[in-house]
Amino acid sequence: MANTSTISAEPSGAKPKPFITWERAVVYTVLIVCALFFLLPLYIMIITSLKSISEIQGGNIFVPSSNPSLAAWEKAWNSACTGLYCEGIKVGFWNSIKITVPSTIVSIAVASISGYSLANWPFKFSEGFFTILLLGSFIPYVVMLYPIVIITRYLGIFSTLPAVVLVHTIFGLPIQTLLFRNYFASLPQELFKAARVDGASYWQIFFRVFVPMSVPIFTVSVILQVTGIWNDFLFGVIYAGPTNYPMTVQLNNIVNSAQGGKAYNVDMAATILTGLVPLTIYFISGKYFVRGIAAGAVKG
């Protein structure tokens, strides 16, 4: 330490510190090792998707391609086979869009209004219903899967888009309602009172006072719903029907329909493509994403 010599007999001024303490060294070492563990699959996904089959078979999983090419991406998107047909994962991509957009809109519309009612206009059994929803969100989905099969079959919408939208609305409702309810309850009660003194009705207060000041929570909610619905596999496979299979199901079918040896490069390209939408949302909206999962879990 260079500055040891300048320390006088009497302590004075800033206390000299070593460049790095051993505690800090441990902290950074652990963090970096863990970061590498978390980054490894992303790295391997990317480099594998840029390799050719022969490079994969002959080479090392950790070593990037000497001759990277996007051929596997092109194949994954346009012509990979799912077992039924060979139109690539783009079919699943568009299906996922068709599922995610209406599901997100419907579920957030229902949940935001329910949350507003619960927070600002409670009535006799409102908290009871909410408790049911909350407990319901922890019930394993399998318990309610077959009853919903019966309902959708009765309505003649089983294996169609409306069925999967309905299911996402149902299962998204508890956490979304919780999110909105806690947010609206955290707004000053006096604001609500002021609007009532101003003569605003139930809907006027919601649309003209609360919604404009709730952009952050709607953002959080959209992020949670879009990533959640996009990443769903179970509901898609059960309720959507083969022509509407979302991207996750298509991905699984592409990977599993090995025809003459696994094409790992195409599989990994399809995997990245499937993860791309939620990842993009995640990287763009980092803070909101964290806020969303924390708000859903730790309550407002």
Partner: peptide, 16 residues
């Protein structure tokens, strides 16, 4: 409230 001929001022101002 709006039909009572009252105006109200709140502690937290409650401005939109």
């Amino acid at each position: 409230p709006s039909e009572r001929g009252i105006g109200m001022v709140f502690q937290s101002y409650a401005l939109y």
